[in-house]
Nucleic acid binder design. Structure first.
Lengths: 236, 236
DNA sequence: TTGAGTAATATGTCTAGACATATTGAGCAA
DNA sequence: TTGCTCAATATGTCTAGACATATTACTCAA
């Protein structure tokens, strides 16, 4: 029941693949101006929008630089961009096949250190919720969390049973942030870290530092400390 | 010369913004099925493709899950994805306003450790180029690089003057990889790290571990060690 | 020579209609 | 009940033409 070979329609994926191939093979070197959408549409016998869709995708992925009138160029620094997914910790643990549990160590109202208050744009003297939580995978320490929450931005948190649902999860489920700053770094374990994670003081910890906002209102500042051996991985 | 207020055309950005607002405000809760493209097109008095463009953008950003026939739902786990840009180290240094320099410490052919050979899928006994490079910002250590290069995949590297141009830069300019695995972690400084970076042995270093491929051929494996205090930052 | 004004041009987007494709769910048969 | 078939449906994509917009390149006057 073989169909006669009909002229297969050109999809944007076809153009995308062809263009990517030309970039990779060096036919279109970095910095080079590539043919216009109209030319490519003619070459591939398709509509200009089809080409546009393909090139936009490549531009989104950082392979091309596009500017009106100026045309489309191959990116000079082939952008090496990595997508890191920042999971809810429960998921992070459970996708490893381990069982998740968390334990609330400290919960109190406290005035944040000046540096943090400044970073969050708070008036001096403003109190925040301060939480210390230990996340466990199969009963073993997975990460130690230190968190400050701005109750003015998230009043609902005051009624949340944070010993049952972690602040991490509660916030993800209840609050959409509009902006977040993320920093990854290494730090030696403090005495507290060492006690929580059951490692020696001064051990090299992997730290995820995050500050999230709704508009210009700070919601929460988190420091997640992972014990030695933890790897945050991704594919480029 | 004020124009009479003409019916402004609805752009996909309008729909995008409106949809995002509904998601954030909770009008479209997580997991909820949102109206179909046809309905939204009617609501916003625009073509279906305009709505489609807007929703596709939101889906790309992880805010929506779309499936044919099943419809479009608000993502239950609002994927928090961070884009990390992995810069060429020269750029990383120069955007800080510092002057870049690198120094080649070791360059030799060597048989890689078994673990690495396995990870790269090499036959036992295959030799690679082994490089130790120190990257300097304003003359001070910025990062210590340990790199293995597969000459079979990149024969051109043999002719590159690696004391003048860093392997990092040479590879970025000359080789397109098709896939890369990236890991971020913390490690205590080895004796070698300590000497290169001028820190105490055992200090908490931020490590970027990368393995890149062309098709199924491994190109290079890199370990970049950053001294304490280094932060890799991004915005979500 | 310089600067202002203008035409040319490549990308960005919208439209309206059409067909493709995956998936669901209903109806029917074993 | 279980499994199969088929119609319904929402998204995915293509087309052809039109207008919008940013930016370059050119022209001409001060």
């Amino acid at each position: 029941m073989a169909e006669a070979s009909v002229q297969a329609p050109t999809t944007w994926q076809t153009v995308h693949a062809a263009a990517l191939d030309r970039i990779r093979s060096g036919a279109w070197p970095p910095g080079e101006l590539i043919p216009t959408e109209v030319d490519l549409a003619q070459e591939f016998s398709c509509a200009r929008m089809t080409v546009s869709r393909a090139l936009r995708q490549l531009a989104d992925d950082g392979m091309l630089d596009r500017r009106r009138k100026a045309g489309t160029r191959v990116a000079t620094t082939p952008v090496r961009r990595a997508m890191l997914t920042i999971p809810v910790i429960r998921q992070e643990v459970e996708t490893k096949g381990a069982s998740y549990r968390h334990s609330l160590i400290t919960q109190e109202h406290r005035i944040p250190p000046n540096a943090l208050a400044a970073r969050m744009g708070l008036a001096p003297g403003d109190r925040l919720i301060y939480l210390e939580t230990l996340h466990l995978a199969d009963g073993r320490p997975h990460a130690a969390e230190t968190r400050w929450i701005n109750t003015q931005a998230v009043p609902g948190i005051l009624k949340a049973p944070l010993d049952q649902i972690s602040a991490n999860e509660w916030l993800v489920q209840n609050v959409f942030y509009t902006r977040g700053d993320l920093a990854l770094l290494a730090e030696p374990a403090t005495k507290t870290d060492a006690a929580h994670l059951d490692v020696r003081e001064g051990s090299a910890l992997f730290i995820v530092d995050r500050l999230t906002w709704i508009g210009d209102q700070p919601i929460t500042a988190v420091r997640l400390a992972y014990p030695p051996g933890h790897r945050m991985t991704t594919t480029l």
